[in-house]
């Protein structure tokens, strides 16, 4: 039996986390090949519906990453992302999406080792959870 390979969508902010992901590449910090990055300007631009959409389209995990509080390129967009994340988590749990499948992280441009580490960690967490099969026992595909 082949090992389950989860798919994780990572929304990375243009100014910190995306730069960290690039720098991880430049430094050749090897990561498991399960993450697919979508670049956004700011973690504050990530509409909760994007996260739901990703799960609905078959993602097994979603990461939203932005600058550290106080370092946001847009002053406090990351804080707004944080504010939204609480309700989003609740909603996801209602939908039967396990807690560890969604993460909001602060990754500075200089923290490329952290980026690689977090990604590998999350991949293993999600792998252990298995495919995202919300309560309906069917993938959420087609909901959003």
């Amino acid at each position: 039996m082949t090992r389950f390979e989860p798919k994780i969508i990572a929304f990375l902010c243009n100014w910190c986390s995306y730069v960290a992901a690039d720098a991880a590449g430049v430094s050749r910090f090897v990561q498991k090949p399960n993450v697919r990055v979508i670049r956004v300007f700011c973690s504050g631009m990530v509409d909760p519906s994007y996260v739901i959409k990703a799960f609905a389209s078959g993602a097994d995990g979603v990461l939203v990453a932005g600058c550290h509080p106080g370092d946001c390129h847009y002053l406090a967009g990351n804080i707004k992302a944080l504010r939204r994340s609480f309700l989003l988590r609740k909603l996801l749990s209602e939908l039967g999406v396990e807690e560890k499948r969604f993460r909001l992280e602060w990754i500075a441009a200089s923290e490329s080792p952290l980026y690689a580490k977090l990604m590998n960690e999350m991949i293993e967490d999600v792998r252990n959870l298995g495919p995202c099969m919300p309560s309906s026992q069917k993938p959420l595909k087609g909901v959003a």
Binding site: G44, M45, V46, K53, S57, G77, A81
Partner: peptide, 30 residues
């Protein structure tokens, strides 16, 4: 920055070149 777009409860605001259509399509494509 798009934080207004993410907050708008009726999706009346879009950031040009980062619209929900575009992001949704990218998610589906991936």
């Amino acid at each position: 920055c798009g934080t207004c777009a993410a907050a708008c409860p009726v999706a009346a605001i879009e950031v040009q070149h980062y619209t929900p259509d575009q992001i949704f399509a990218q998610i589906e494509g991936i």
